[in-house]
Amino acid sequence: MIIPMIRTLILYFLVVTAMRIMGKRQIGEMQPSELVVAIMISDLASIPMQDTNIPLLSGVVPVLTLLVAEVGMSYLCLKSIKVRRLFTGEPSIIIYNGVVLEKELRKLRFSLSDLAEQLRINGCSGVAEIQTAILETNGQLSIIKKSPPLTAEDLGVKSKSNINLPFLIVMDGDINNAELRRSGKDEKWLNNALKRRKIDSVDEVFIAELQPDGELFVQRKERFI
């Protein structure tokens, strides 16, 4: 009983020290290599904790090796852009000038649902209010909004708060019937709205978002532009 306890405490302090030495980035947002190191360290440290037949050094040496490798790689990434690009990748622009870049989303295997989720997490109601969105190397989405329209506050007028979200009614050529029903519209209305924009069929649409103010934001698929 006591032996696993002592080993666990030793390895715990070693892992905490190693994570501290590797820097605050480890605790916050992680690059892919940092995530790998964090997972490996926790796995390696747990093995000698559980099996007292394995020497303690079998946990200590791999943890120290990973620490040296990670700090070494961080140093190389600092000094060389090529190495940095190789190990951490590059940020990707997925919305540019208000247009969702379909090819980029496909390349990143980032679905529209993922995009909508990230936008909501970032406090944005929908795609229509985004000027530029960049998917960073650590998986976070950075957003630059379009110039905000005048609000009631700017005019010095009181208004009820409007926390309605837009309705994502078409995603990659498919109608989201639940969202369409929730918006109070139907397919006939949608088809008419698309025809007004000279779009013959829903299949041509990459994204269609009905704003709370009734405005329909539509983006065609690249091959139909």
Binding site: I21, M22, L64, V68, V71, G72
Partner: peptide, 18 residues
């Protein structure tokens, strides 16, 4: 800087230890 020094010491320990 402290990280590099600590990593350097760890690397030295590993090399000599090995």
């Amino acid at each position: 800087m402290k990280s590099f020094i600590a990593a350097g010491i760890a690397a030295l320990f590993l090399a000599v230890g090995a």
